[in-house]
């Protein structure tokens, strides 16, 4: 069994950091002040989540849906307004703390891998409909008719007291 070359190890490390959003390009399409919808794969048996359940899923503390499917968390790249909102409200972390959080979890083998990075709302919306068990967040304006939007504490993004806005 040969050892991996140092260059490849760096590539892997940088790739992991990139997945966690370090050094990723700024998304010029970011918009602020808009509600963010939590979207899941259409077959996922979850129409309503409590905010606590949502937080556990996003923080990798709950990794399987009730039907046994693995949760695949799709995260927007840094600088997207919706990512900043999710980090603030759900994770209560900044980018550095977020990166440290996931690397720590991987080092402790509490998760197999960090969130999967997506570079646009379109990509997040498209991927969540084709990946069983996927969950993501998109600005409410990017929600399509095929998207399955989950209620948070019984509220939809259109409701006044919705938490992710």
């Amino acid at each position: 069994m040969t050892r991996l070359p140092v260059g490849f190890r760096w590539t892997v490390l940088m790739g992991t950091l990139a997945a966690l959003g370090w050094g990723a390009p700024v998304d010029a399409q970011s918009e602020g002040g808009e509600a963010v919808a939590i979207v899941v794969h259409p077959d996922t048996d979850a129409a309503n989540l409590t905010f606590n359940e949502l937080r556990r899923i996003f923080r990798g503390e709950r990794q399987f849906w009730e039907d046994g499917r693995r949760v695949t968390l799709l995260m927007r790249a840094p600088a997207a307004a919706e990512r900043a909102l999710v980090l603030d409200r759900i994770y209560e972390m900044d980018e550095d703390e977020f990166r440290e959080y996931w690397i720590g979890k991987m080092f402790r083998a509490e998760v197999a891998a960090g969130p999967k990075l997506v570079y646009s709302a379109d990509m997040a919306r498209d991927l969540v409909t084709v990946i069983p068990g996927a969950i993501t967040f998109v600005p409410v304006a990017d929600v399509s008719s095929e998207s399955k939007v989950v209620r948070i504490d019984g509220l939809l993004p259109s409701d006044a007291d919705y938490i992710l806005r």
């Binding site: 693995r70 695949t72 799709l74 197999a112 891998a113 498209d126 991927l127 084709v130 990946i131 996927a134």
Partner: peptide, 19 residues
């Protein structure tokens, strides 16, 4: 651990493949 890592990434890769 390795199985879990592959299992974790496979649905994402299948989604990318379909797109």
């Amino acid at each position: 651990q390795n199985r879990d890592r592959v299992e974790d990434g496979l649905p994402y890769h299948q989604g990318i493949r379909d797109i």
